[in-house]
Amino acid sequence: MSIVAHLPRRALTLTEEEAAAPPTMELAGRKRATAEERALATTIFGEFHADSRHREFVLGCLNCGECTTGCPAARFYDFSPREMLQIAQNGDATTLWDAMQEKIWACCQCYTCNMRCRFGNDIAGIISVMRELSVRHGIESTRRALAPFGRSLTLLMTVGTQVSSDMIQPDFFRDWGPFATGSDKVWQVSADIMRKAIPSDVLQTTRSAWEVSVQTSLELFRIYEETGVLDMLRGLDPDLTEMLVDIIEERREEFAEARERFGEELKGMQGPVATFSG
């Protein structure tokens, strides 16, 4: 099985310029929206307010700012959970659209704002709703924000773990130092041997976080198909989605073959293992 997702190449050592100034996120959405974008913004605005979670998560706001105080993202980006809640509560289609360009991606989803909010709002939750809509409608800035995640998405969609040890490549994770990446250079053995030295067979793989059985990954994919996740992803990245479907097709064939191969051993077993066909 070949997973062909690309790893983004991006220098991660600090340049002098970066070292001198704290990192900032560019604020997008200032340029004039096209008619097409305005129409999309209106659609999104309607869907956002119709979502039942909106009523549940956004209760009101005293504008006290405590959410922003505890917010890690507010410290380094032009971002404030209070502003996001205000936009969710009172904003119009344009402000919502602007916030959905880049600001939503600054949030760390740490839930500190929720725990601090004296009004009981679910701010991290409402930001997730905005993100979900931006993915569902495949808006351009979201494509860009998610571009580096092809590999982890592929893993998540096919085996249901987001990281594998072979993802932690030293050249991509130079800032993590020489010891963090399976340490093959330090210990003079291959990454495979480093994984073998973990005392559980389930973890002795480099291609996913742990070995995931084919049945399990097919069950997961079935969930994605049935709950609209695949369609959602298709809107964002059709090529990636087609690749995922291909991978899963291969695994379904593999599963069917295995059922023949292990027919004897499977006899008499009950529950999903006996009935699930992929």
Partner: peptide
């Protein structure tokens, strides 16, 4: 704006009020 947290300043002799 509210102060959300109070921490110690470097050296521990002063308080830092963090808020918006």
């Amino acid at each position: 704006g509210r102060i959300g947290a109070v921490t110690l300043a470097e050296g521990g002799s002063r308080l830092i009020a963090t808020g918006e």
